[in-house]
Design a protein around this nucleic acid. Structure first.
Lengths: 111, 111
DNA sequence: CCATTATTTCAATAATCGTTGAAATATGGA
DNA sequence: TCCATATTTCAACGATTATTGAAATAATGG
């Protein structure tokens, strides 16, 4: 799971609303139209947001007749909450925050 | 707590690294310089990211001599995890299957 | 086939984002 | 005071974002 991608997918008002609605709907999901109606979003805007959620692993689609049915991927959400709990919550355990950068450009040049 | 603001603040690689480092450092925090060195970030870029974290309620600053010391706000982070667990996890527990520390159980768990 | 419904794709747009370099500010010490 | 250190502010810049309108695609029914 890419935590940053998942966080970014949820870090937008409309998209968070969409995801919450999908979570409420459960594994069976909702048609794009139902979400558009519930949240008053243009269908093309909604497609854009669904794509983001899908790319972050937070939603799936399937076609059913003319409708596209989107559903939340709970597994990814659980992984995200797990990541945040383990890495970003004070209390108990915090895994080391390790920078994945190759070199230090800004430190002093040794003599 | 503004969940979207907090999510957005963490939805960026460098900023997530910064926050994790602050969490790791605990309530005493770290100087801006220490974070800059640890993550190899330019000081002005870092100021920008600190500002975002602060605006989202995820960090605090205090001056100590010449240094600015940033610290994670665990309260906000815990609130965020709480929000996600309540609103985005389908009502069932989102907590990782493997707790890092034994917690007191409220009821008996069936085998 | 044609019409209707449901959704996506595409191009354009303004707005925001992350980074950089240069300059400014604040503090402490000689 | 002058100087070095630590950090911020400011003005750019290209990149990405969310939204819109128009057109395209897919499936169903007559």
């Amino acid at each position: 799971m890419d935590a940053v991608a998942a966080l970014a997918a949820l870090a937008q008002d409309n998209r968070l609303d969409v995801f919450r609605l999908l979570v409420q709907a459960g594994p069976e999901g909702l048609t794009a139209g139902a979400v558009a109606e519930a949240l008053d979003l243009a269908p093309n805007t909604l497609t854009f947001h669904f794509d983001r959620l899908r790319m972050a692993g937070l939603a799936t689609v399937r076609r059913e007749g003319r409708s596209m049915i989107y559903a939340a991927r709970f597994e990814t959400m659980n992984a995200l909450v797990g990541f945040l709990t383990e890495n970003c919550c004070g209390g108990v355990s915090c895994a080391p925050a390790k920078p994945s950068k190759p070199a230090r450009k800004r430190s002093k040049v040794p003599a």
